[in-house]
Design a protein around this nucleic acid. Sequence first.
DNA 1: TCCATTTACGAAAACGTTTTCGTACCCTGA
DNA 2: TCAGGGTACGAAAACGTTTTCGTAAATGGA
Lengths: 334, 334
Amino acid sequence: MVTIKDLSDICGVSVSTVSKALNGQPDVNPETAESIRRIAHDIGYHPNAAARYLKTNRSYNIGVLFADQLKHEYFSLVLDSIREAAQSLGYDITFISNKIGNSEMSFLKHASYRSCDGVVIAQARFEDPQVVELATCDLPTVVIDHVFSECPSIMSENVRSMTEILEYVNRLGHRRIAFIHGEEQSAVTQKRLSGFYKGCMELGIKVPEEYVLGAKYHKPKESGLATRALLSLSEPPTCILYPDDYSYMGGLSEIEKHGLSVPGDISAVGYDGIHLAEMLRPRLTTYRQNVEEIGRKAIDLLIEQIEKPDEKIHTMITVRGSLQIGDSVRRILE
Amino acid sequence: MVTIKDLSDICGVSVSTVSKALNGQPDVNPETAESIRRIAHDIGYHPNAAARYLKTNRSYNIGVLFADQLKHEYFSLVLDSIREAAQSLGYDITFISNKIGNSEMSFLKHASYRSCDGVVIAQARFEDPQVVELATCDLPTVVIDHVFSECPSIMSENVRSMTEILEYVNRLGHRRIAFIHGEEQSAVTQKRLSGFYKGCMELGIKVPEEYVLGAKYHKPKESGLATRALLSLSEPPTCILYPDDYSYMGGLSEIEKHGLSVPGDISAVGYDGIHLAEMLRPRLTTYRQNVEEIGRKAIDLLIEQIEKPDEKIHTMITVRGSLQIGDSVRRILE
DNA sequence: TCCATTTACGAAAACGTTTTCGTACCCTGA
DNA sequence: TCAGGGTACGAAAACGTTTTCGTAAATGGA
């Protein structure tokens, strides 16, 4: 490794002067400083992050908490945009877990062990005490798709997305609309549920109790079961809203099992807007989440906290997605 | 942050003794050591990684190079298994890029700036001089799905996978088999091509030149075009092998555009074995890569280099996947 | 009893930085 | 000429660890 000592030897000045030149301190001759910077650039010197942290208490390293669902495209894309945003601002990212080797270590301990400047809680079991501890600690934190008091959060505009979807399917003539939602205890689900009821109300759509069913996010089997229940109603819905695009796949196969088709017999809408949606035939109509914006806002909010520790930030930012229209909702004639 | 000094105050011994106790040095009274360890555990002390690195030159941090294709499930799953494997062995992982903030920094510089103990080159433009520099430098490195001299590598058994696929479709009666492959310059493609030719030869299958077409990995449009070319041949293939599951989707839509169906008119086989494959109807027959094993072997190989720097390791490990049979290949009667 | 060895601990240096403080030198003004 | 003040630089401490080395006390052997 090339150290500041090596550089100072080459430049013929002390390490103090080199450090000051590179950090733009005023008490160094402009010409000397410029020459030092040039040489540093030429030999490719970069101050070691670990040593620098020790003095400054700033690691320029951000921890991210991603429990285990990276396999879902939505989370992968969020991670990608977090990484992109962080690196463009000079921060690297490291995964935080609650074990290291064979010894247990809370998420918070892990973040401090790695001396993270802050943590993005991107996907986790939000009811886990360790996650709560992390979200409410002194360390700058931001949470995605959930709300904690004392911790800024980024959420999709879940209410609005539902009303937008409803307006669309209503415009195509649907009045019997079912909603299969994800885990009930999730903040996201609650928002979407209220968006669903709000939208239906505004459009004068009556929602039979049996039209609202629970499943789990990203579990095609669960939404398949819910779909089966819907299809066996004496008055089945003409359109089913799914909790996410994967879940639609489970519903679809159940629909086909009944000898029905999308959108001929049943219309369907997904959520998330993953790649898959546009590759399917019929193309799936879905609500595309703005993952780039979600990641970027999360990092913006986190770094604001890191760099201005005095100001208490307590925002909740919502990010608007967009309805991505495919061929999975047909027009119904009265 | 709780430091070793705090801990030593509580224990009533010097920091040296605490350090030695925690690191299992022999010259400390077993009872003292045990008591120190208990107190450390109780107050949740963990030595700060940055400070520790400064003395030991070991960061227990592994850099990973993932260019920009995290959006593809295959790479996400590899990342997930790398992370899992690394953390189970006490290592964290950090993304390596070639810029930090608004200043350029080579991959190698970045890894050294973050004092990584080693780097996994998981997905990159392998011809990029910076990647070559990284792969051939002194820092322990391992590369996935490519071969560099001087750098151990992990690859799927690409040759064997192709022969396995061929045996299967041949068994179902296919003799006119086309192969759409990915980028020609890629090592993976080369292996699969030779596996394809080898398999065909062994089975006595004649391959017209027009049956082997190039596309790009994960580009449905490209494979769609290739599919169109195949369908317009005077004697089109009865079965098409795709470079990956996404590409199959592009081919499928082209097939349907011609009024044909899978597997009724054309049989098809994918590659990778992503989730999507089993959710489609017909379920896609595909070759499932063993992502868990790939990630684990990569980390094993890397950490072996890290912990035994004297032994020159220069292995190439291949990981076997498995044919995942769906409904996209039909039996052909002579 | 006395010396030699072992045992158990602490002081201090070092890792690569940043930052505080001290100081030599050069100006300027009277 | 001399005081006063600015400019430009370096020495050294500090961050939280690990590790080397020194040493006091305890132990063992004759």
